[in-house]
Design a protein around this nucleic acid. Sequence first.
DNA 1: AAACGTTTCAACCGCCTCCGT
DNA 2: AACGGAGGCGGTTGAAACGTT
Length: 391
Amino acid sequence: MGRSPCCDKVGLKKGPWTPEEDQKLLAYIEEHGHGSWRALPAKAGLQRCGKSCRLRWTNYLRPDIKRGKFSLQEEQTIIQLHALLGNRWSAIATHLPKRTDNEIKNYWNTHLKKRLAKMGIDPVTHKPKNDALLSGDGQSKSAANLSHMAQWESARLEAEARLVRESKLRSHSLQHQLGNSGVPMPPRCQDILKGWNGAWSKSTEGNGGVPAVTAINGSDLESPTSTLTFSENAPPVLTAGVGDNSMPMIEFVGSTSGSSETGAVKEEAEEDNWKPFEISTHVAEYKEGIENSLSFTSSLHDLSISMEGTWTPESLIRTSGTGHIHFGNVMGDEGFTNLLLNNSDDQISLSDGGDDSDHNGSGSEYYEDNKNYWNSILNLVNSSPSDSPMF
DNA sequence: AAACGTTTCAACCGCCTCCGT
DNA sequence: AACGGAGGCGGTTGAAACGTT
């Protein structure tokens, strides 16, 4: 308080809008555009403050607003974006055409948050609530998780900041990426992964208790596909490509103990796995650029990530007895969707014990579910529109 | 049918960021 | 660089709708 109101509120109406007010606002904007919101109410003959008019327009009257129930895909998108972005509703809303940030926020608070909680997932961190129960040493594990979570968050923020800067050069960057290297790379993906790796790299300096990322080997792929490459000294490179389904995809190839063959798990997003939203114009342009490139070949690198303890989104991975982590399969139709649907009413059954190297039964399922959960988030990172304000 | 509790969502509030001066 | 105006954003509120007893 002690703060001047956004506009002179004396005599201004508050509360629900009447159909007459809606009509006035609608008619004025259709004819003149909104122009200055502050000046609009007087011009439109409304006893409202400009802010109220803007809100009414953006959240309700705008013609391109879709109302009604959220589809499952929309739900997934919200949850996954929330895992990445937190409560940045406007950023999330840009990925849900015709939905407003307010609507998404309401839907999150009234539906999704509760559903995640029921599933045993913390709706704030998107981490399993009872991590501690899964570990023999709950306290130290929790501390480790906290530390890794901080790294994750730090990486994310770093990536966001960088992309904000780069977004101003966005119009040039796409051409650059396509023209210079022949290997297009969406800045968004690059940055989050850089940030991600950056956090890992930092943490490995003089610290054995954190992930070390090592490229194992490489081989060429004929078909264009997205490849996430981790290397120790360089930022991970995401060579995004277009699969048969013309959707950009991300590919994780894991291996155990340095072997690219034994125990390697190849991950590939498939067409029907998850379609978070319509491909944006920019992705279409991006795809077109890829298709037009003369020789687009991407490298496929196996990766092995050594780590101790758990890394934050530890649900993404399974930790082997050797301390290597494996990226699990990108969820199929049965994955995240069912996770949401099947657990909307019943609490997910979580394993109550055992070490990380051996999760059988419900524990294994638990890890599978959460692995899929985070995989789908990473998949989203890759398939988001490049003009997204996501990061 | 009434009372009560819960859920939903439009709208408000205050802070923040951007941008022009 | 500092300032102020305008718009944007996220948290919160409260009335209405809905469900339960």
